[in-house]
Structure formats: C-alpha cells, structure tokens
Amino acid sequence: MANQRRPHDMGGAEAGPVEQTEHAPESWEKTVDTILRLVSDKKRRIMTVDELRRGIEDLGPGAYDELNYYERWIASITSNLIAKGVITVEELGAKMEEVEKSWAEKA
C-alpha cells in the first residue's frame, strides 16, 4: 500500500545532522504557549492539544518548513478559536490592525 506519510510524521526519514541550536524563548512565544495552556485547562476546556495538532497538520505540507514552531501553533490556535466561535475573523482582522498600528507608533 502506498505510504501517504504526512509532513509531520517524520520518524525514520532521511535527514542531516542534528544542529544543536537553541534560543531563549521570546516573550511572544511564551504568550502562544500561555494561550494554549489557558484555553485547554480544566477551567475552560475550549480546545484540546489534539485539536492544536490537527490544526497544525492541516496547515499543509509547506508549513513545517515555512513557519517556525510557535508560528504553526498560533496559526492553529487561532483557526480553532474561530471555528469554535470564540473569536471571529472580523474581530481578529480589526485587532491585528490595531496591534500593528500601536506597534508602529511606538517604534
């Protein structure tokens, strides 16, 4: 049977040396982690880590190489929150404009 291996399912694949890179987590990355921990906690149960993973896998084959780790996370979290009606696309678009504008003003 043809093996329809999806891009995230990489165990055993050919790959180069392990580049032992690391960086101190940036604040926005910790914020992404924070959002998931809070919306998936016992108090809220808005989404599960399984839904996070499904959303990342559904970003498509390019996502693993084009987006970094927490970029994939926030893309999936956001998509899940919209699908569940917690936020809307319109609210998100307006808020992103607001965030970008206030960022530019401070710079």
Partner: peptide, 16 residues
C-alpha cells in the same frame, strides 16, 4: 494496522 485513513492520526507511519 497497515492503513492510511485521512486525517489526524497518532500512530506514526514507521511502525505501521
């Protein structure tokens, strides 16, 4: 099991 249903799966390919 050796199968490939579409969608989210937590059984890695390399052991199927």
């Amino acid at each position: 099991r050796q199968w490939e249903p579409p969608g989210h799966i937590r059984t890695p390919s390399f052991i199927r």
